[in-house]
C-alpha cells in the first residue's frame, strides 16, 4: 500500500512547493497593466501597419491609455472606432475624414512613353539607381510597384505603367508615400475630388514633350478659380485642399487634362 501512496505524496509535495513558488513569484513580480489597454487593442483593427507612427496596434493602444489621449487617430480604422475608444476613456474624439493615397501622375504608356528598355530588378528604387526615370518624363511614375509591395491592404496595382489605387480598399495609412522614390503619392481627404495629376516642374514645352497630359504651368486654372484655391509654382499647378470647393472650373479650363475630377471613375475590385 505504501509503495503506491508514497509517490503520490511525493508528487503532491512537489506540486505544493511549486505552486507556492509560483504564487509568491506572481505576487513579487506583479506588473500592473491597465486592463483598458486590452480593450482598446481589441477595438483597433489589428492590421499592425504602423500608419499611426507606432510599432503596431498594441503600441498605439498603450499610448492611448497611458497618455490618456486620442491625439493620434488610427488612420486605418473607421471614425466610429476612435469614437468608441474615446467613449471608453471618457474623452472627446475629433472626427477626422477618411484619407486616401493619390498618385499625382497620369504617365501611362500612352501618355509618356518608355525611354529605355529597363531589364533590371523590378523595383522602383532599383530602377532609379540605374536611371532617374525610365520614361520620357523625369517625374513620372515608374510603374515597377515598390508601393504595391509596401501596401498592406491590397489597395494598389500596376495598370498600364502606373499605379492605380483602389479608394475603397485604401485606408490612408500612408505607408506607400515613403516607398515612392519619385515622391508622387500624397494623402487627400476622400471628399477632395479635384486633383492635379502631374508632378512635372519643368517648363511648359519640355513638360509637354515628355508627357501628353503634363501640367504646362499655363496659369489658366489659377485665373479661372474663384476661390484662390489653385496656384502655379515652378510651372506646376497645386491645389489648396482647404479652399477648394470642387466646383470643376479648373478641370474645364485645363488645356492638357492635367487636372482631374475624381468620383466618376468606377473602380473594379477583383
Amino acid at each position: 500500500m505504501v509503495e503506491i501512496l508514497l509517490p503520490g505524496f511525493i508528487l503532491a509535495g512537489f506540486a505544493l512547493i511549486s505552486a507556492s513558488g509560483l504564487y509568491l513569484a506572481s505576487k513579487k513580480f506583479y506588473v500592473y497593466e491597465d486592463p483598458r489597454i486590452d480593450e482598446v487593442e481589441a477595438l483597433l483593427p489589428g492590421a499592425n501597419c504602423g500608419g499611426c507612427g507606432y510599432a503596431g496596434c498594441r503600441a498605439l493602444a498603450e499610448h492611448i491609455v497611458n497618455d490618456h489621449t486620442v491625439d493620434t487617430p488610427c488612420p486605418v480604422a473607421e471614425p466610429i472606432v476612435m469614437e468608441k475608444i474615446a467613449d471608453l476613456l471618457g474623452l472627446e474624439a475629433s472626427v477626422q475624414e477618411k484619407q486616401v493615397a493619390t498618385l499625382l501622375c497620369k504617365g501611362t504608356h500612352e501618355n509618356s512613353a518608355l525611354a529605355m528598355d529597363y531589364r533590371g530588378i523590378q523595383d522602383c528604387w532599383a530602377a532609379v539607381i540605374v536611371a532617374d526615370s525610365i520614361k520620357d518624363c523625369a517625374f513620372a511614375c515608374l510603374g515597377l510597384g515598390s508601393c504595391v509591395q509596401a501596401c498592406n491592404f491590397d489597395a494598389m496595382r500596376i495598370e498600364n505603367g502606373i499605379v492605380v489605387i483602389d479608394e475603397e480598399k485604401c485606408t490612408g495609412c500612408g505607408i506607400c508615400i515613403s516607398h515612392c522614390p519619385k515622391n508622387l503619392l500624397v494623402l487627400r481627404p476622400v471628399s477632395q475630388k479635384t486633383i492635379v495629376t502631374c508632378s512635372n516642374t519643368d517648363r511648359g514645352p519640355e513638360a509637354r514633350k515628355a508627357c501628353k497630359v503634363a501640367c504646362i504651368g499655363c496659369m489658366k486654372c489659377q485665373k479661372v478659380c474663384q476661390h484662390q484655391a489653385i496656384y502655379v509654382e515652378d510651372f506646376l499647378a497645386r491645389i489648396d485642399f482647404e479652399k477648394c470647393t470642387n466646383c470643376g472650373d479648373c478641370v474645364e479650363a485645363c488645356p492638357t487634362n492635367a487636372i482631374e475630377m475624381r468620383g466618376e471613375q468606377v473602380y473594379v475590385t477583383a
Binding site: 533590371g120 528604387w125 532599383a126 532609379v128 539607381i129
Partner: peptide, 16 residues
C-alpha cells in the same frame, strides 16, 4: 543573379 544591383539597392535602402 544580379547581385551587384541588389547590393546597390540595399545600400540605397539604408541611405533612405
Amino acid at each position: 543573379r544580379r547581385l551587384v544591383h541588389w547590393m546597390r539597392l540595399g545600400k540605397r535602402i539604408i541611405k533612405r
